[in-house]
Amino acid sequence: MTDPVRLSARTLGDSGPRVVFVHGLFGQGRNWTTIARQLAEDGHRVTLLDLPNHGHSPWTEQVDYLDMAGLVAAELTALGEPVTLVGHSMGGKVAMHVALRSPELLRALVVVDIAPVEYPETGGRSDDPDEEASPFAAFIAAMKAIDLDALATREEADAALRPAVPSTMVRSFLLQSLVRDGVGAGGGWRWRLNLDTLGRDLARLRGFPEPPAGAHYDGPVLWIAGANSHYVLDPDRPRMAELFPLVRLVRVKNAGHWVHSEQPEVFVETVRRFLQQVET
């Protein structure tokens, strides 16, 4: 019998209410470390999960929201008490499905810059005619194009990604998943990302599987969006309110899709205030 898949997890803090973070596409739990430390200092136990095909978690044969939600739900069950679940982008969609299918596992939900909708492959999320197409396929192609056997330094990888990934912040984010095993001539580079499977199933990740008939999550929900992002638009609000009746939307100025990296102080303070409300 095959052993069940367990996600890689790391917890900061020894006591207090539990908060669990789920990263987005190409990310890993460690992306949340700075924020997690601040919340742990506030008296929380903060768990950082690596989703399948990312970080230190196992690779799977397909990338599917319901599969990922089931694996996250299993980890939350093992914690033994309700948590505040925070998810960004792809992780936000996973978190929403956990809330809709296993609401007893959550005290509250934080959804970061994503909506329960299907996203188009090319633009179309704003009135801006110059809006760029979704860059994720180009990111995967650029990462796969790097000859890891010939790669000498991380700086070379950064330079190779620059044409497809002009943002220094995003390149640094992607390169966190490029690791070297060993040192010297015998040390080889590899991606902790399952790029082949992620690339093949990218269209599936743009969608949002239909929740069970009549499903809704009645707990408190904080919806954080970057004011400059096209991932959360006004037409998305009715569907969000239908699934999450107690949702409250906060738009963060001078931030795009990676709102927690672009405006970390505002993001942390917003989450702190929400936690104070739901934990009293």
Results as ranks from 00 to 15, higher is better:
His97Gly: 01
Pro103Val: 06
Pro235Gly: 09
Asp3Gln: 14
Met90Ser: 02
Gly256Leu: 08
Asn53Gln: 11
Gly207Glu: 08
Val111Tyr: 03
Ser172Leu: 07
Pro235Asn: 11
Ile224Tyr: 03
Val278Lys: 02
Val117Gln: 11
Phe267Gln: 13
Pro82Ala: 08
Glu210Leu: 12
Glu155Leu: 07
Asp50Ile: 09
Val117Lys: 14
Phe267Arg: 10
Leu76Thr: 06
Thr2His: 14
Asp128Gly: 11
Leu106Tyr: 12
Ser167Thr: 06
Gly43Gln: 12
Leu85Phe: 06
Met143Ser: 01
Glu75His: 04
Glu118Pro: 04
Val271Ala: 09
Pro58Ser: 12
Trp191Glu: 04
Ala36Ser: 04
Met1Pro: 11
His257Arg: 06
Pro58Phe: 09
Phe26Met: 09
Leu76Gly: 09
Val20Pro: 01
Phe267Cys: 11
Arg239Glu: 15
Arg107Tyr: 10
Leu243Lys: 10
His260Phe: 14
Ser102Gly: 03
Gly70Val: 00
Gly87His: 10
Thr168Leu: 13
Arg190Phe: 03
Gly87Phe: 06
Tyr217Ile: 06
Ala145Cys: 06
Asp234Pro: 13
Pro58Arg: 08
Leu100Tyr: 11
Phe173Trp: 03
His260Ser: 13
Phe21Asn: 07
Pro52Cys: 12
Val232Ile: 14
Leu195Ile: 00
Ser102Lys: 13
Gln38Tyr: 04
Arg18Asn: 08
Thr60Gly: 01
Asn194Ile: 03
Leu275Val: 09
Leu205Asp: 01
His56Thr: 00
Glu132Ala: 15
Val19Met: 13
Val19Cys: 07
Ala36Phe: 05
Pro82Val: 07
Gly207Val: 08
Thr153Ala: 11
Phe274Gly: 13
Ala145Tyr: 01
Pro129Glu: 04
Ser89Val: 06
Ser126Gly: 14
Val268Met: 04
Ile146Ser: 03
Val232Phe: 05
Arg37Trp: 05
Ala213Gly: 10
Phe139Gln: 02
Val183Gly: 00
His23Tyr: 09
Ser167Asp: 13
Ile114Cys: 05
His54Pro: 02
Asn254Asp: 15
Val271Pro: 00
Ser177Gly: 05
Ile146Leu: 06
Thr47Asp: 09
Gln38Trp: 07
Pro17Asn: 10
Ala73Cys: 02
Arg30Tyr: 07
Arg190Ser: 14
His44Thr: 07
Ala108Pro: 00
Thr84Met: 00
Ala74Gln: 05
Phe208Ala: 09
Val98Gln: 04
His260Cys: 08
Met68His: 03
Val250Pro: 00
Asp218Lys: 05
Ile140Arg: 02
Thr34Cys: 02
Pro235Leu: 05
His260Lys: 06
Thr34Ala: 15
